[in-house]
């Protein structure tokens, strides 16, 4: 029993990071109905930007983190400006295709700049390892969970309590209507991409902190796909639930199914859950129920 709780706990912590990844995809999907396939590369770029600030420039973490995240946000906004903005008002499929292209383009850029080496990545965060008679949680995942949930809450607060957030939600619903009421939809879309890439950078730093950072780390970004498909493509709460489900199911698969000889099943399990959920609820657990008046 304690074994199970331990596994679920570990899964929850990593699940919070996945939830953050899902949030990044959901925010962009709500605004422009495009799925951001390049999320993994955004993650790597964000982490490397932080790497420069923290390890290369040796800034203290409370300066390096905001600076790194700001840089990630600027990169996100720049990419939006160059690639997505010209497509405003067109078919969202073309934006999705663009992000597919960005995926490979950004991967190549990262390899050109930083090479394919593995960079050791160790944040000197205070040790808060939780160790009791039955449970044992490592310090790094706990920090990752804390940072992720904090970022998640901040984003939700921004979306639902500020005038910018209101404008973002208005643009997300209908760009043309928002423009007609004087909301600068193009600028708001840029803000959305910046926010999304900042969140991805937070997740990236936390994930890199588990081990090391390399150009190939971006593959973890693909976890966002089952997360948002389970939670519903346009639901922020769904991203949280989906993230937790994926995290827990991954950790359960790792603890109980892999020892049966199915090595690597941990990576497949989320997609199994996704398939089952999609069979039952094609729009995901919390996908929007379109408003229909009676």
């Amino acid at each position: 029993m304690t074994d199970l709780l331990q596994t679920v706990g570990t899964g929850t912590l990593i699940g919070l990071v996945y939830a953050l990844l899902g949030l990044c995809v959901v925010v962009i999907f709500k605004a422009s109905e495009a799925f951001n396939f390049a999320i993994g590369e955004f993650l790597v770029v964000g982490s490397f930007l932080f790497y420069i600030m923290f390890f290369d420039l040796n800034l203290p973490i409370f300066i390096a983190l905001p600076l790194g995240l700001l840089a990630a946000g600027i990169v996100g906004a720049l990419i939006e400006y160059l690639t997505i903005k010209p497509l405003l008002g067109r078919n969202p499929i073309s934006m999705t295709m663009i992000t597919l292209g960005l995926w490979f383009f950004m991967r190549a850029c990262v390899q050109l700049i930083w090479g394919s080496d593995t960079y050791s990545f160790f944040l000197d965060l205070p040790d808060i390892t939780l160790e009791t008679e039955q449970f044992f949680f490592l310090s790094d995942p706990i920090w990752a969970g804390i940072f992720s949930i904090l970022t998640f809450i901040l984003v939700v607060f921004f979306l639902f309590r500020t005038r910018w957030g209101l404008a973002i939600r208005a643009v997300s619903e209908d760009q043309a209507k928002a423009m007609a009421f004087g909301i600068n939809a193009r600028f708001i879309l840029m803000i959305i991409w910046a926010i999304s890439s900042i969140c991805i950078a937070v997740a990236g730093v936390m994930i890199s902190n588990f081990g090391a950072l390399a150009a190939g780390s971006g593959i973890v970004g693909l976890r966002a796909i089952p997360v948002v498909l389970i939670g519903g493509m346009d639901s922020i709460g769904g991203a949280l639930v989906g993230g937790l489900i994926i995290g827990i199911c991954e950790s359960l698969a790792g603890a109980y199914i892999e020892p049966m000889g199915l090595i690597g099943f941990k990576d497949v399990a989320p997609y199994f859950v996704m398939l089952i959920v999609l069979f039952i609820r094609p729009y995901g657990l919390f996908g929007t129920v379109r408003i229909e008046r009676v």
């Binding site: 005038r163 209101l166 404008a167 939600r169 208005a170 619903e173 209908d174 043309a176 209507k177 928002a178 007609a180 009421f181 004087g182 909301i183 408003i291």
Partner: peptide, 26 residues
């Protein structure tokens, strides 16, 4: 100059209060 589009240009998923606030964004 404000343009009210045809077919009720409101934000369906925002409350009426939020709609009015969103319109005052500028």
């Amino acid at each position: 100059l404000t343009y009210v589009m045809e077919d009720r240009p409101i934000f369906n998923y925002l409350t009426i209060d939020e709609n009015l606030k969103a319109a005052a964004y500028s």
